[in-house]
């Protein structure tokens, strides 16, 4: 691990300022992904801003009838919250489908959104990777790509986003609240947080330098059957090959987002209009532009079957 300075932030704007005033800085909260990457020298920040003391660890009800989740709420506490279990069960299901008890106790809501890909070539510093070392090439394309993206990737990168939580947040229309170094706040929809790789896969989000996530808001509950179905190589502590987050209403309409197939949670509001016609009709639109490799072309039919299983469970 490279040496770094460490500054404890006392309020969000000061955290943003501290991060923006150092060239190679990172925020640290749970640290479960960042410290791992720092040990491997994939991440080499020279300045860490400790945001753990900002007090943003509460879940409050909003005036609109939704929830406002502080960025530091642990994955365990978010999954276990009575209101989340009752009104947003797809979020609890997605959270407990990820990682382990130990990791969920430490990992935070904001940090979960910002975790890095688990592409094996991103992790192997002996291999080219445009995300880790821009311009060096992509060893995954033509390499071992079973886990990787079938849609949304580019000729420069086919990494997937690893989060389960973010897939549920996308289907729930969650928005992130941020503060920048000037103290300006804004809210960002989950879909607008993430960038597709294009020819700059090292740029993963639309956050500005120093901009810090302070909370995530959930709109008023929409009811329906809420299901998170994760398909993986072993039944616990593994990343998704394909996951489906779905909200299915009694009349058969609803929402669908996919995990494990793209560089961000994959949802298309047009495609999900076909939900009453069944899984095939949704996937024919949602994955119409899929460009899988020989290794991962199985994910396209798997996604369709997983959604079919979800619809069966929902009773539609």
């Amino acid at each position: 691990m490279r040496a770094f300075s460490l500054e404890r932030a006392s309020d969000p704007q000061q955290a943003a300022k501290s991060a923006a005033s150092h060239e190679n800085s990172k925020f640290i909260a749970g640290g479960t992904n960042l410290i791992d990457l720092m040990k491997l020298e994939i991440e080499t920040p020279t300045h860490l801003v400790d945001v753990t003391q900002l007090g943003l660890d509460k879940i409050e009800e909003t005036d609109e009838g939704g929830l406002r989740i502080g960025t530091l709420v642990s994955n365990t506490d978010l999954a276990a919250d009575d209101r989340v279990r009752r009104d947003y069960p797809v979020l609890t299901r997605a959270l407990v489908a990820g990682a382990t008890g130990q990791l969920r106790n430490k990992a935070t809501t904001g940090g979960n959104f910002l975790q890095r890909t688990r592409c094996p070539y991103f992790y192997d510093t002996n291999m080219p990777c445009n995300k880790r070392n821009p311009g060096s090439g992509c060893a995954a394309i033509g390499g071992y790509s079973r886990q990787l993206a079938v849609i949304g990737g580019s000729d420069h990168c086919i990494a997937t986003h690893p989060s389960d939580m973010a897939v549920a947040m996308r289907v729930l229309d969650a928005e992130l609240e941020t503060v920048d170094p000037d103290g300006k706040t804004r809210s960002i929809a989950v879909d607008d947080l993430y960038r597709l790789p294009g020819d700059t896969p090292e740029k993963e989000t639309n956050l500005k330098p120093g901009e810090v996530i302070t909370a995530v808001t959930l709109p008023k509950p929409v009811g329906g059957k809420q299901i998170y179905y994760k398909v993986r190589d072993r039944s616990s502590y593994a990343f998704a090959l394909v996951s489906v987050a779905a909200i299915v209403q009694p009349d058969g309409t609803g929402r669908v987002a996919l995990g494990g197939v793209a560089p961000k949670p994959w949802r298309d509001e047009e495609a999900e209009k076909a939900l009453p016609q069944g899984a095939g009709a949704v996937m024919d639109t949602l994955l119409a532009d899929a460009n899988p490799t020989d290794d991962n072309e199985f994910k396209v039919p798997l996604a369709k079957r997983t959604l079919a299983a979800v619809l069966q469970e929902a009773g539609n």
Binding site: L6, I28, G30, G31, T32, I35, D36, K39, D50, T52, S74, T76, T100, G101, Q102, L103, N105, K106
Partner: peptide
């Protein structure tokens, strides 16, 4: 493993179990 994958380093902090290899003492 020193990477949060094996759990040999599990301890409790403020009543919750965590992987002590994936956090900094200074935090």
């Amino acid at each position: 493993c020193d990477h949060g994958q094996c759990g040999a380093c599990t301890i409790t902090v403020n009543g919750r179990r965590i992987n002590s290899c994936l956090t900094l003492a200074a935090l």
